[in-house]
């Protein structure tokens, strides 16, 4: 029987944008999307798509990508489809705005997962590169009462179990759980595959399922907030860098050593 895999993926402002392009609107406490730099699928979520496709390469599986947000760049969000995912479900509504509140996001994703009939395996990124919360996946697992294994660098499904190589500070451990389970993955999983031309063609033809909050079965306790953003600011760095300049780079290196000794750094 085909394994049903759900991948949770978020559209984010490109974290690799030049630092100078990073702007905050302090009054609305929002990051201003940089003009001319398109959003991206959160990097770790591309790793999650790759993890799902690697399973699909080896056995019969379907891969459904789910995302919540207020506004989507369709060409960006279709990337997982062009990589080889089967289906895209977009939950688009203004109530998805408060994305710093993982509780709300997780509740909404869970409602969508239930509506889709549940998954054998849910794969997520380790964290979203906007709010760096690293909470939504654990919340989804908790709300669904399933095991969660975080920071995976290899994910296999064997005999109804998921087997994950999970990064720990000094190496990795191999962890197993029965399905259904949730796994988060990190960039150590490896470079996600590039879309093929055939994949891109197929993705253009595919229509995403688009739901609003009204399509989900939610009560008010599920959509009430848990976290309030009080302030958002750019930290100021007051460091003055002393540039050590010798006659040539080698001389600078030598002078650096002397300077570190002189200032008792070493």
């Amino acid at each position: 029987m085909a394994i049903k895999i759900g991948v949770l993926a978020k559209q984010v402002i490109d974290p690799e944008m030049p630092m100078a392009a990073f702007r905050i609107d302090e009054s609305s406490k929002k990051v201003v999307p940089p003009p001319n730099i398109p959003p991206v699928v959160n990097g770790f979520d591309e790793n999650a798509v790759e993890a799902a496709l690697l399973i699909k390469d080896a056995q019969e599986a379907t891969v459904t990508v789910i995302s919540t947000g207020t506004e989507f760049a369709l060409d960006v969000m279709k990337k997982p489809l062009s990589m080889g995912a089967d289906e895209l479900v977009l939950l688009q509504d203004d109530i998805f705005e408060n994305t710093i509140d993982s509780f709300l996001t997780a509740q909404l994703l869970v409602a969508a997962i239930r509506k889709l009939g549940g998954f054998d395996l849910i794969i997520c990124g380790r964290q979203a590169s906007d709010w760096d919360n690293a909470q939504v996946p654990l919340g989804v697992a908790e709300l669904l009462g399933m095991a969660s294994i975080s920071l995976g660098k290899k994910v296999d499904v064997i005999d109804g179990k998921v087997r994950v190589e999970r990064i720990i500070p000094d190496g990795y451990e191999v962890v197993e759980a029965s399905l259904p389970s949730l796994v988060t993955v990190s960039n150590e999983l490896g470079q996600p595959r590039y879309p093929t031309l055939r994949g891109i063609m197929a993705a253009t033809r595919k229509k995403p399922t688009i739901w609003s909050s009204a399509d989900l079965d939610l009560d008010s306790s599920q959509s009430s907030s848990r976290i309030t953003l009080r302030d958002l600011f750019v930290p100021v760095s007051d460091q003055d860098c002393e540039i050590i300049e010798g006659e040539d780079p080698a001389d600078s290196g030598r002078l650096l050593a002397l300077k570190l000794r002189e200032d008792k750094v070493i």
Binding site: C241, E242, I243, I244, A250, S252, G253, R254, L256, L258
Partner: peptide
């Protein structure tokens, strides 16, 4: 490079030249 906004000391140069000189000088100092 952004790092020169964060560092206390900096050398602008190719590491292939700077690093061996730094290493040699530190060897002598320690």
């Amino acid at each position: 490079a952004n790092i020169f906004k964060e560092a206390r000391y900096g050398v602008v140069g190719d590491w292939e030249t700077v690093l061996p000189a730094l290493t040699t000088a530190l060897k002598e100092l320690t």
